[in-house]
């Protein structure tokens, strides 16, 4: 079935099974391979993208459900928080194998958009859906704090 998705600000045409998870549409049909497959059951977070700004597990989200919504993948992450996170990730040498890190950064970017100064507990709560088998967790926490420190605190949260 032909459908149109808005991915990283671009309209993208697809002719796939409407039940196909967004993950496979992105990877196999749109060549956006930064979003990773880790479990296919919303258990690991490797496939995390933003749908209208919300962190979403693309492996269990059918393409039919995201038509007309704004999808952002790691390739299109351009928010100040996203950039600050990526800088902190590089500075603290966070990635090891790196395979989980797109998903980690997408989850962290959604966290900072919501909560510009998260505590350790808040980081753990927001990030516990993202598995890292290399166990880079200590550095992920540190990098989120470091990125947060470079961002202005939003004044409108209430």
């Amino acid at each position: 079935m032909a459908l149109t998705l808005s991915v990283n600000g671009q309209p993208r045409e697809l002719d796939v099974d409407p039940q196909m998870p967004l993950l496979w549409a992105l990877r196999d049909h749109l060549q956006l391979t930064g979003t990773k497959f880790g479990c296919g059951m919303a258990l690991c977070g490797a496939c995390t993208v933003h749908v209208d700004g919300q962190p979403t597990r693309s492996c269990v989200t059918p393409v039919s459900a995201v038509q007309g919504k704004n999808i952002t993948t790691i390739e299109g992450l351009a928010t100040p928080a996203g950039k600050a996170l990526q800088n902190a990730w590089v500075e603290l040498n966070v990635p090891q194998c790196g395979y989980c890190q797109s998903g980690q950064i997408m989850s962290a970017a959604a966290l900072l958009a919501d909560n510009p100064r998260p505590s350790d507990e808040e980081i753990d709560a927001a990030m516990s859906g993202n598995i890292c088998r290399c166990a880079t967790y200590a550095r992920i926490r540190a990098a989120i704090h470091q990125a947060a420190d470079t961002l202005p605190v939003a004044v409108t949260k209430g």
């Binding site: 930064g34 990635p95 797109s102």
Partner: peptide, 9 residues
């Protein structure tokens, strides 16, 4: 490899 692994590349 930090940069490539922090940008999905």
């Amino acid at each position: 490899d930090s940069h490539a692994k922090s940008t999905g590349r």
